[in-house]
């Protein structure tokens, strides 16, 4: 008998994330912030925005996974986060399909 609507998650222990994890994440974020500002002053050509975005994504992942507890959350919440990312990427890629292929475009 399946009754996962109400009970599936009751068995999932509510995970308390402690100060140790928070501090570790905090220092990682600080280091990344320093790193991204430092890298910005070095001429790496096209790699500059790539690195800046990669660091930003890494930082965002740390916040989502640990500060926002997604690392310890149910599959449903993980899926929710993923779907938000997916729809944003749909907006970006489908819009870009227009912008990158315009004959008169500035791309």
């Amino acid at each position: 008998m399946s009754q996962h609507g109400a009970t599936e998650l009751e068995h999932q222990e509510h995970h308390v994330v402690g100060p140790k994890v928070y501090l570790a994440v905090f220092f990682a974020l600080m280091i990344c912030t320093g790193l991204t500002t430092w890298v910005a002053f070095i001429d790496l050509g096209v790699l500059n925005p790539v690195i800046a975005l990669a660091i930003a994504c890494f930082k965002a992942c740390l916040v989502v996974l640990f500060f926002m507890h997604i690392h310890y959350s149910s599959k449903l919440l993980k899926l929710t986060v993923a779907s938000g990312l997916f729809i944003f990427l749909v907006l970006v890629t489908m819009t870009l399909s227009d912008y990158i292929s315009r004959a008169w475009g500035l791309w």
Partner: peptide
């Protein structure tokens, strides 16, 4: 509320490199 506050933080994490760090060199 913590989730909301962290989310606002994440937005800034992206705004900072996008707005402040274009070709700084």
């Amino acid at each position: 509320f913590g989730l909301y506050w962290h989310f606002v933080d994440i937005i800034w994490i992206f705004l900072f490199p996008l707005l402040y760090l274009i070709s700084r060199y």
